[in-house]
Nucleic acid binder design. Structure first.
Length: 346
DNA sequence: GTGAATGATTCCTG
DNA sequence: CAGGAATCATTCAC
């Protein structure tokens, strides 16, 4: 490395005329033009190169210092930088300022929506909350599942942030290292600040592609967790006996029009400790199954009708109709079972 | 293990 | 968008 300064210098004390290492023609000033002299010069230079390692560290440092102090150095440096800029780096310059990667934006948006990136939302996510709300079954079982989901999500979140931090730290360390290296090298070769900046942006681009991989795998993990959570929700739990009785009671006492209003559904949902959606499901299933096989439900219908009648009788004996169904087995709607002898199955 | 029962989901229709 | 119909998937009784 120190070869260059040595060859470039001739005016300072170091390597000046009279120095035994300098070519003959440089020492003489006028320069020899004969072939033998030239051969001699080359021989001296080769000799110089061969003996470079023999120089002491101090001597090398002194030469280096001399180079840096040379009055022409800044000008020469600038010229070389300019030439370099105009040739090699002009090709790369065109692809700077690229627009944000749509794939990266998608990943970022998803991580934000799932509550992995962005501000902490108590370990939960909007998606989880929505899923939990839709899942119905307001029981403790469901909330346990939900908290399990949240715990796993927060685990993913933690890993994501730890890794991200690691990458950022590594990126910063590497950038600093490269910048220092380039700055150091800029003393001996033409490296402009602009070029250093460019190198930094290249490093950042490389690291952001690694970050993208991290984001991608985090998204995959969230998707797997979510699908597992949703699968778990598919697990069916039978309603308890009391809830089924309440629903059946309503159904058979409104057999002519087994379509509970929104208010009625809400009321039933509250009584049965299930969601309105589950009430709707139950009535949907019940209507279709009843219609398909009235015979099978006959016994059940008779039982509930009798119970309703007893309830009504009790209520009336107490001078109140409060709990009796409003439209029991009246005209129209679904065919009634044999409890009403005049309205048999179609 | 098997089949019936049953809650949930999906697709279609008015 | 609510409800009907078909179907899926799980639970439960035997």
């Amino acid at each position: 490395m120190d070869e260059q300064p040595r060859l470039m210098h001739s005016h300072t004390g170091v390597g000046m005329a009279g120095h035994p290492g300098l070519p003959q023609h440089m020492q003489e000033g006028t320069g020899g033009t004969d072939g033998d002299g030239r051969k001699q010069d080359i021989g001296d230079i080769l000799q110089q190169i061969m003996t470079i390692t023999d120089q002491s560290l101090d001597e090398a440092q002194a030469r280096k210092h001399a180079l840096n102090c040379h009055r022409m150095k800044p000008a020469l440096f600038n010229v070389l930088c300019e030439i370099k800029e105009k040739t090699v780096l002009s090709i790369r310059g065109a692809q700077e300022e690229e627009p944000p990667d749509p794939q990266l934006m998608r990943l970022d948006n998803m991580l934000l929506a799932e509550g992995v990136s962005g501000p902490e939302k108590g370990g939960g996510s909007a998606a989880a909350a929505a899923a939990a709300a839709a899942s119905g079954g307001a029981g403790a079982d469901n909330s346990a599942e939900h908290s399990d989901y949240r715990a796993k999500l927060s685990q993913i979140r933690q890993i994501y942030h730890t890794e991200l931090e690691k990458y950022e730290q590594a990126c910063n360390e590497f950038t600093t290292h490269v910048m220092n290296l380039l700055r150091e090298q800029s003393r001996t070769r033409p490296i402009s600040p602009k070029e250093i900046e460019r190198m930094v942006s290249i490093i950042h681009r490389k690291f952001s592609s690694i970050q993208m991989q991290l984001k991608q795998s985090t998204c995959e993990a969230v998707m797997i967790l979510r699908s597992r959570f949703l699968d778990a929700r598919r697990k069916r739990r039978n309603f308890n006996k009391q809830a089924t009785e309440i629903l059946n009671e309503y159904f058979y006492s409104h057999l002519s029009n087994p379509y509970p209003s929104e208010e009625a559904k809400e009321e039933l949902a509250k009584k049965c400790a299930i969601t309105v959606a589950q009430v709707s499901n139950w009535f949907g299933n019940k209507r279709i199954r009843y219609k398909k096989n009235i015979g099978k439900f006959q016994e059940e219908a008779n039982m509930y009708a009798a119970r309703t009648a007893v309830n009504a009788a009790n209520a009336s004996s107490h001078g109140s109709q409060a709990n009796s169904p409003s439209t029991p087995n009246s005209a129209g709607g679904y065919p009634s079972p044999c409890y009403q002898p005049d309205r048999r199955i179609q």
